[in-house]
């Protein structure tokens, strides 16, 4: 009798194990649910997927949107620009997020881009570095290995250590495209996140790296490019040279769900530009 009970319990445990699998949700998804009830009775879900650089911006927008539309479930999956574009083309999410403009081959597959905001890419050096300003041309020469020592730029003697991002990163694509150094950069280190780049630069007096404007804090020094300091104002008026778009990717011809369309309209409206600015990016509006 005891054995029978034990077996039954074992069987139940085994089956509950499998049952548990079904209801499991991906742990890296940030789910934001609204709390206050708005005027409209919109319901459904909006899923976004893509660029990790856009996390702050899209998170803030999602929160603001669900605060007004409590029936909508908003999710953001930080996978990277490439994965986000793939996800939207495979129909796994409503809106893809990319921190680079779409490639022609991607547009050819029926994807449509809408620029949400701009992000400035800061060129950063160690706080102990005496160099404060570089031209775009000098930056290109540094990254292609033509200029190898800080003394050539008026700094203290020491080899320049080039820190960059991994191949395929939106920040790297953006930086190399703007400085026209595609496939030419002689990196000393290729790191996989903005945080790693900032940490490494803050540790090495000879290092130079790049990171998005929103994530640069005072642990490192942001250089002026061609005499223009990187700031929201200079990115917005276009005087700061190294900047890239934050793009919303949708499928051409495919109508979004009611909730997704409302979200899309909301974040591209003038109303949302304040939230985008608060999140550290520069709104197009």
């Amino acid at each position: 009798m005891k054995k029978t009970i034990a077996t039954v319990i074992a069987a139940i445990l085994v089956f509950s194990l499998f049952a548990g699998c079904n209801s499991k949700t991906p742990s890296n998804e940030t789910s934001v649910s609204g709390t206050t009830s708005g005027g409209k009775t919109l319901s459904g879900s909006v899923s976004t997927d893509g660029s990790t650089s856009m996390e702050k911006v899209i998170g803030a927008l999602g929160e603001a949107f669900t605060a007004e539309n409590s029936g909508v479930n908003f999710t953001y999956n930080p996978t990277g620009s490439g994965s986000g574009i793939t996800a939207v083309s495979e129909g796994r999410c409503d809106i893809g997020l990319s921190s680079r403009a779409l490639k022609d081959e991607e547009k050819a597959t029926g994807l449509k881009e809408t620029v949400l905001a701009y992000d400035g890419i800061c060129v950063i050096v160690n706080t102990g570095n005496t160099v404060a300003n570089l031209t775009l041309d000098q930056i290109a020469k540094i990254y292609t290995g033509e200029i190898k020592n800080w003394s050539e730029l008026g700094g203290t003697d020491g080899e320049i250590v080039l820190i960059g991002r991994e191949a395929g990163s939106g920040t790297r694509d953006g930086f190399e495209a703007i400085t026209k150094t595609e496939d030419l950069c002689q990196y000393r280190q290729e790191l996989t996140s903005t945080g790693d780049v900032i940490t490494t630069v803050s540790q090495n007096p000879g290092a130079i790296g790049y990171a998005s404007l929103a994530s640069v804090k005072n642990t490192v020094k942001a250089l002026s490019v061609g005499g223009v300091a990187a700031s929201e104002a200079t990115v917005k008026d276009g005087t700061y040279a190294i900047q890239r778009p934050f793009v919303l990717v949708t499928k051409e011809g495919k109508t979004l769900s009611e909730a997704a369309q409302a979200f899309f309209d909301y974040i591209t409206s003038a109303e949302a530009s304040e939230i985008i600015t608060a999140a550290g990016a520069v709104s197009v509006k």
Binding site: T86, S169, Q189
Partner: peptide, 21 residues
């Protein structure tokens, strides 16, 4: 020298890769 292992080659580029890459 800065080097890349078999494991890190997969891990560092997987996130943003596409196509033949």
């Amino acid at each position: 020298q800065s080097v890349r292992f078999l494991t890190t080659a997969v891990a560092s580029e997987m996130a943003y890769s596409s196509g033949l890459q």
